[in-house]
Design a protein around this nucleic acid. Structure first.
Lengths: 224, 224
DNA sequence: TGACGTTATAACCGTTTTGTAACCCGGCGA
DNA sequence: TCGCCGGGTTACAAAACGGTTATAACGTCA
């Protein structure tokens, strides 16, 4: 599940990103309105969190732009007491809002509620190239083969790779997203998991076509 | 479909009642917390809408009381900006919230979504494949066999599975829907319940045809 | 109250999934 | 050439999972 968060307050942005990452979401950051729009195009997030006051383009403008081409859930961040901002945001098609300051717990609760309401909770039709992932059933289908069962960890790993298909994802990031922590001994876990996943999805696990290694950096899913 | 709406603001209450009535729901009104609880007992609504600030008993208290004996969907009405209220409401078992002011259209959309999620929307006879469920009588009929009596929990479980027939429902969600809570020890409850239900509805309970396990994910009802 | 059906809790078993360690191998600089 | 490093592979132990059975707690109704 990919979330785009845009805010010019670096500290707040970091806090948001941290909170959501911990909860297993993939977070894409933007620090102004134009960046946010570009990131929206490039990443195709499942949910967008926009600060209203941003250089480049305000949250309103970004929201309006997004709404011209997508119904993705949008959450607006407002300063407490600015009621007219709120009304305007909702009129522009925002789905929820959050008044600053807010607690991480609150943010998480609202994000979850929003995703649930949007029906995105489990049912993102995740696919990349010849790979089709069914998160509900815990299965992948490669090409037109028989669907394969995946374990919880394999699913999470593949989910992260698909969410970033075509780009390499650093080992640290994967460790973080799949296990929620990162230690020195955890390199082995990732090696293992990658190996197991390759056994399942690659034609020839010894010569990986899809799940490729980026030496020294991480792994990536190549799509044609 | 019966909806209980509690709010001490007469105008808002009337608006809610009007909106929902127009949409074909039967609305029961209450203007304070104690009335709400009494009405809940007397009427057994399919959904409850609670204002947080009410004389008599707050929405929190009412929600808490209701949750001790029912898993009926509860929607909370909050004043915007009161994040703490929200978190508390969700923790107490509320299923959704709506910040005032809201548009009638929004209210209706949320109510529908909630009912759908709870599997209550199906007024049609609950059936899937060879299974026919009679919610009033607490019975199932499989194929043309003798109708079987189900217990309360078995009924709810089967209801949820039928509402999502063909799709895997996660254990967490089943736990939530059937018991209304989710704890670590509750894994066992679900195992048990599934086992007992299989004994009743499967031809060969050791090799389930209908109520199948999706390892690591949950359970699903397969329909041909 | 006591019997009965229902629901909760616990223990056991075989299987799958996950964690840990060791070893292998090719590349690279000393 | 040697030894080290990063990544792949193999092997095995630990933990989690799902099914099953047994038993205790609970509720209801005569």
């Amino acid at each position: 599940m990919k979330i785009l968060s845009a805010d010019d307050d670096k500290d707040l942005l970091a806090l948001i990103a941290f909170t959501l990452s911990q909860a297993g979401y993939l977070v894409v950051k933007a620090s102004d309105g134009t960046q946010a729009l570009r990131a929206f195009e490039a990443e195709g997030p499942d949910l967008v969190i926009l600060d209203i006051n941003m250089p480049g383009a305000t949250g309103f403008q970004v929201c309006e732009q997004i709404r011209t081409k997508s119904r993705v859930p949008v959450m607006m961040l407002t300063v407490r007491g600015e009621e007219e901002d709120l009304v305007r945001a909702l009129e522009l098609g925002a789905d929820d809002y959050l008044s600053k300051p807010f607690s991480p717990r609150t943010l998480l609760a609202r994000v979850k509620a929003l995703l649930r309401r949007a029906g995105m909770e489990n049912t993102a039709p995740l696919a990349a190239g010849r790979i089709q992932l069914d998160v509900d059933e815990h299965t992948v289908q490669v090409g037109s083969n028989q669907p394969l069962r995946l374990t919880k960890l394999e699913l999470r790993l593949l989910q992260m790779l698909i969410a970033n298909a075509g780009h390499t994802v650093s080992s640290d990031r994967l460790l973080m997203q799949v296990w929620g922590h990162k230690g020195s001994g955890d390199r082995q876990l990732l090696k293992q998991l990658v190996h197991r996943l390759r056994q399942k999805i690659e034609i020839d696990p010894a010569a990986p076509q899809m799940l490729q290694t980026a030496p020294g950096a991480g792994y990536k899913l190549v799509v044609e």
